[in-house]
Simulated assay, not measured.
Amino acid sequence: MGRGRAGAALLAFGALGLGLAFGAMGMRALTAAEREGLAQFLLQFWGNPGLVLHAAAPAAFRRALAANLKVEGLLYLLGISVAGIPLVPVVLFFRGFVAGFALAAVATAFGPRGPAAVLTLLVPGSLLLLPAWWWTAGQALGLSWRLVHRPGSGGWGRELARFTALAAVMAGVVTLGTAVQCFLSPLAAHWLGL
């Protein structure tokens, strides 16, 4: 990996990490009543295994998959355009913010069972989703940077094909991560009695 690509990967990692940290801190900005309302909503959804495992899971999967693939598609489009340099870190920051906020919200909602709930409900899918977005974002930044700084250097067809193949593979990883979050994680939480 060249210095440019390593720098792009580091920038993407930093944006994602900052988003996670700010998202977790964002939970503290809510009032006690807002935190309680959010906790009740989460417990109503995840606290009813029949709802999660049978009725709501397919619809939740479709909605989550559409949203997650939009992020992957947006990172791809930004990577093949000059707009990617300033916008890719912004997209990654916001995805990190959402993930960090969700982690803090679930930990709060489940009280003493919070760490177990986070490890069961959110971490397995996130271990696929976040690295997929990070990897796509790092490659998108590298490609955008090259478009700006070496536009006439040639080899664009090969690089575009490589980036497109990577984005397609990462879309598959995103699909798998979404399936884990919507189907396997609630099932594991039910087995563990969360």
Results as ranks from 00 to 15, higher is better:
Leu18Arg: 12
Ala12Asp: 08
Ala171Leu: 11
Gly19Asn: 14
Gln181Met: 12
Ala24Phe: 01
Ala102Ile: 00
Gly193Tyr: 13
Leu130Trp: 11
Ala21Pro: 03
Phe22Asp: 15
Ala6Gln: 08
Ala60Asp: 08
Leu119Ile: 00
Ala66Trp: 05
Pro58Ala: 14
Ala102Val: 07
Gly172Glu: 03
Ala188Tyr: 02
Ala117Asn: 01
His54Thr: 13
Ala24Ser: 13
Val88Ala: 12
Arg162Leu: 03
Gly125Phe: 07
Arg63Glu: 10
Ala9Ile: 05
Ala64Cys: 01
Trp156Arg: 08
Gln44Lys: 15
Leu20Lys: 13
Pro112Arg: 09
Gly50Leu: 15
Glu159Ala: 12
Ala24Pro: 07
Trp145Lys: 10
Arg3Lys: 12
Leu42Met: 02
Leu69Gly: 09
Leu121Gly: 08
Phe41Asp: 12
Val174Arg: 10
Ala32Ile: 10
Ala66Asp: 08
Glu72Phe: 06
Val173Trp: 14
Leu127Tyr: 11
Ala55Cys: 00
Arg113Leu: 12
His149Ser: 14
Thr178Val: 14
Ile85Cys: 00
Thr164Leu: 01
Gly155Asp: 11
Ser144Gln: 00
Gly114Pro: 02
Gly152Asp: 13
Ala67Ser: 12
Ala15Cys: 05
Leu65Asn: 09
Gly157Pro: 15
Leu42Asp: 04
Arg146Ala: 03
Ala15Gly: 11
Phe22Arg: 13
Ala55Met: 06
Arg158His: 01
Pro151Gln: 04
Ala39Met: 08
Pro58Gln: 14
Thr178Ser: 06
Leu10Arg: 08
Trp133Asn: 07
Gly157Thr: 15
Val90Glu: 07
Leu65His: 07
Thr164Asn: 11
Gly142Arg: 11
Gly114Met: 09
Ala39Val: 12
Tyr76Lys: 07
Glu36Ala: 15
Ala188Leu: 15
Val88Gly: 12
Arg3Tyr: 10
Ala21Asp: 10
Pro186Trp: 08
Phe183Ile: 10
Gly73His: 03
Ala99Gln: 11
Ala167Val: 06
His54Gly: 14
Thr108Val: 01
Asn48Trp: 13
